[in-house]
């Protein structure tokens, strides 16, 4: 597999706070790689390091299989945390500066402005933009010069529902063109909808990584109920295939391996003389998987 970005044991400490703790990631070419984590989990720090803005205390990383350098970052379009532009310049002038830095020429400015829906306000000063418009300009800057990789940190921040939809479409369009997208977000729905791969961070540590499908398949939830819930629970507690039992009102939620056949759960229940009044198997949503991981870490 062709790896675009590889990090090994990246660590960063801010005083007493360990912002990143031995992060190792491998991001395949052409993937939409979601970095998921609650606020303060180290997502922005990780992206800041790989983009050269933040100094790591230890660890290493490589872009395109090489030692990282400015020449690699010119092939990476990025939006880190918030759009950073000079407020007294127009949107277009700010993009000219980015184009000069990346050495892409000014030809890609107009298409990027059109694609992000901010073309009509290109002559306005940046400080007159709304939060959503600033975010769109940040995305336009990231798209300049047809970059091989897009690194987007919370790209839907400040956008209205239409804007959020537009950005998701844009990310998926870019991915369809073969571009690798690295997307940091704490919005689970956003990651689940657009990402092919996911890494989950908490307190600077990597809790899990893999394809979104693998991560979602790692556990299923079975909802079960019976007239005698206490007896039902004691029967299920003896079943080694049940990883976790959560009592939710009159229903027990069982966490099981996705490969576990339903009969291996229901037969012992029937043998105990119980009949299920409610039985439902559901695949894990990223949200519940994420919350499980975070709870486990805590």
């Amino acid at each position: 597999m062709n790896i675009i970005l590889k990090t090994e044991n990246l660590s960063k400490r801010y005083g007493a706070i360990q912002a990143l703790d031995g992060l190792s990631l491998s991001i395949p070419r052409g993937s939409v790689y979601g970095i998921l984590g609650p606020n303060g989990s180290g997502k922005t720090t990780a992206l800041g390091i790989i983009l050269g803005a933040i100094r790591a205390n230890s660890g290493s990383w490589s872009w395109f299989g090489d030692e990282p350098g400015p020449e690699h970052l010119r092939k990476v379009g990025s939006l880190l945390e918030k759009p950073n532009f000079l407020p007294y310049l127009t949107g277009e002038r700010n993009l000219k500066i980015v184009a000069d830095i990346r050495g892409t020429g000014y030809d890609s400015i107009e298409p990027a402005l059109v694609k992000t829906g901010i073309y009509d306000r290109r002559k306005s000063n940046f400080h007159t933009y709304s939060l959503g418009m600033k975010q769109r300009l940040g995305l336009a800057a990231a798209l300049l010069g047809d970059p091989e990789v897009l690194v987007l940190d919370e790209p839907t921040n400040g956008l209205d529902p239409q804007g959020i939809y537009d950005v998701r479409q844009l990310i998926m369009d870019e991915a369809r063109c073969g571009r690798t997208v690295i997307l940091a977000s704490h919005i689970l729905d956003e990651v689940e909808k657009v990402c092919t791969h996911v890494a989950v961070l908490s307190k600077g540590k990597l809790l899990a990584q893999g394809t979104t499908a693998e991560l979602l398949k790692s556990a299923d939830v079975i909802e079960i109920a019976a007239d005698n819930l206490d007896k039902l629970q004691s029967v299920l507690e003896k079943n080694t295939l049940v990883k976790k039992i959560v009592r939710n009102g009159n229903i027990l939620e069982l966490t099981v391996d996705p490969a576990t056949p339903m009969e291996r759960i229901t037969e012992p229940v029937a043998r105990a003389g119980l009949s299920a009044t409610h039985l439902l198997r559901r695949a894990t949503k990223l949200e519940s998987r994420f919350l499980d991981l975070i709870k486990g870490d805590n």
Binding site: L51, A53, L73, S78, N84, I101
Partner: peptide, 10 residues
């Protein structure tokens, strides 16, 4: 944040 933007852009 101009310096951050400049460095992350290469």
């Amino acid at each position: 944040g101009f310096w951050r933007m400049a460095v992350t852009s290469g």
